[in-house]
Design a protein around this nucleic acid. Structure first.
Lengths: 194, 194, 194, 194
DNA sequence: GATGAATGAGCTTTCATTCAT
DNA sequence: AATGAATGAAAGCTCATTCAT
């Protein structure tokens, strides 16, 4: 729909403004006028490009997921030829950073926005990395004791993303980032290898 | 605040109504009138006991956390003298059931309700079980390779609760309940023991 | 729905305010806040009793139709035993007065309000008077040349109400109220009688 | 304003689009963008020729009135030398057809558009035919019992246009088009002639 | 002249909260 | 203690109109 250059700029400004306004005030606490003001455009313009408040959140989420997925995939490709003992901590760390940076999108937004649940399942960051993870595990398959690689990937995904999200939401005074990454990596390694 | 018997009944009715209304419509979608109607009382009465909509959610959450914690502690006590290989799967399974039953409270509610985040950290179900878990791990300490038991407990908490929550939100076609419990337990065991 | 006395008063105030606000500014030009202000209540109260702006218009119309119908029927009953030559001018005059007083409702409102058309056909003032008109014509049937009384009634209805409405909308410098009533009555008489 | 050929084409396109859009959605329901889209021009162009939404309606009405008036005048001229008994039914029928075809303009539009009432009195279709009607009645003056021809014309105008409009708005199950035309013509004849 | 992106006042409607009864 | 009518700020959204390109 946005054909001209100015329109593209407007859409970008709205998306960027939405990112910060939603992050600061939550979905329900953010009004379309807040977003429009922050973007330096009028509400009317906002509604020219997004038919519904919800649509802004959806667009933002899609964008964030896409970008985060790209980053993570790249990090995994970097590790492709390093041994599991080295690679897994790096990947876990990358996951933590990405989820922290996108905490609001991955954790908060999807639950607050009514119509966002359905189509967003396969939007989740993890889906982007499955094939890459597969390649990485394949690379080291002789070390891996779990017979079904798909099961291994799925479990590791739940383990890492779940634990990281939980930690980010409920940080422990016992454990800092570094330590969590270490322990988590250790746990993953012990799960995977004999 | 509720001193008399009738008052207690009213509060309970409201809490119960809130539980179902919030579950069905979400926090933002539920109105205080919905709740009052479902409870069979007037809005006025509702505000007699809860100064703010948020307070209802808080009370509900506290209640749910308390009850779920009690259940889980009991299950752990049952396992106190069973070996880790047997006990851990039972506990993981119990955690899954409890979190599924309380999914809305533990996962959704806390994010939607603005003022619920801060004071709720130590409200989380896990806090109730830490001492019991400690006792359980202590019981089997000679098997456990992680030097610091507190670290072990914290990590296991993140691993189990995180993975389960993530699974409940994004169930995998690859893995059923049973399998997840098995794999997760396996992973925990391997993490804990040498 | 309105059970208490205060509620009834509020509903009446809203209806009365709506009557004047709609008349002055038209349906589209009237805002629910205008009406609430004019009624001396809050918008919230307005929406407590009327779920939609449209519903106010519908209630008003129903009310106006009912009242006007009652008045007209009474006037006709008064004429029941007077000869057509005398009675018809009286009735035509009454119709003109009623339609002038309710001009906005009968002519403007029904067209402006989207959801008002359907159920309102049989709400029209005429429907209320058909049976009474029938009785009146029956009374004088030996003078009436139109074989089918139902046809006579329908035609007279269109003639009188139509001409009066048109006149009220597009008054003529040629003809005053009195004259129109006289000519119209004459025309009706000539149509009916041999 | 429209001097060039292309401009004229644009204006016509807008007017035609407006005709269909207004008819389908009503005045309030039609947006200037709807109209511009339907006309295949931009909103900017639309505002080049019409300073205000209302002006489009006014232009449309004027156009419709003019065209309908022309048609009706022609029909009357055809009847000029036929006796009243034959001519009047033909004219009544023509009026019905024209008003049905233009129902939205003559009946709906004028009430919905705020600034259309005042100047539009003499825009009404009837004004165009008054002189022609005068000529027709003059032609048959010896049959006509109403002393003042102007009064006769005015009354007949109200009778015919009013009854037809009313019938079109509230059609009767009792009476079809044919019958109404017959009865109405009869009534007019009886009113006019001795 | 034409385009269509941008504007923003203003609308209808909701709902947490208050308070007279 | 309980009721529920009343409140009104504020939200999402529309659309006539303007104006830079």
């Amino acid at each position: 729909m946005p054909s001209q250059q100015r329109a593209r700029a407007t859409v970008d400004a709205i998306l960027q403004a939405a990112r910060s306004v939603f992050s600061e005030r939550g979905y329900a606490g953010a009004t379309t006028n807040h977003i429009a003001n922050a973007a330096g455009v009028s509400v009317g313009s906002l509604y020219q490009y997004f038919p519904r408040k919800e649509a802004i959140a959806a667009a933002m989420l899609e964008d964030a997921v896409f970008k985060a997925g790209a980053v993570l995939r790249e990090r995994m490709l970097d590790c492709m030829h390093t041994p599991l003992e080295e690679g897994i901590p790096l990947i876990v760390k990358a996951v933590m950073e990405l989820r922290r940076a996108n905490a609001f999108f991955f954790m908060g937004l999807r639950r607050e926005v009514p119509g966002l649940r359905e189509g967003s399942g396969n939007l989740t960051i993890e889906s982007f990395m499955t094939s890459t993870t597969y390649a990485y595990f394949q690379q080291h398959h002789e070390q891996i004791r779990v017979p079904d690689l798909d099961v291994a990937i799925t479990v590791v995904k739940y383990l890492v993303a779940g634990a990281v999200d939980f930690y980010l939401e409920d940080p422990s005074p016992q454990l800092g980032d570094e330590e969590l990454v270490a322990e988590l990596s250790n746990s993953v390694l012990r799960y995977l290898t004999a």
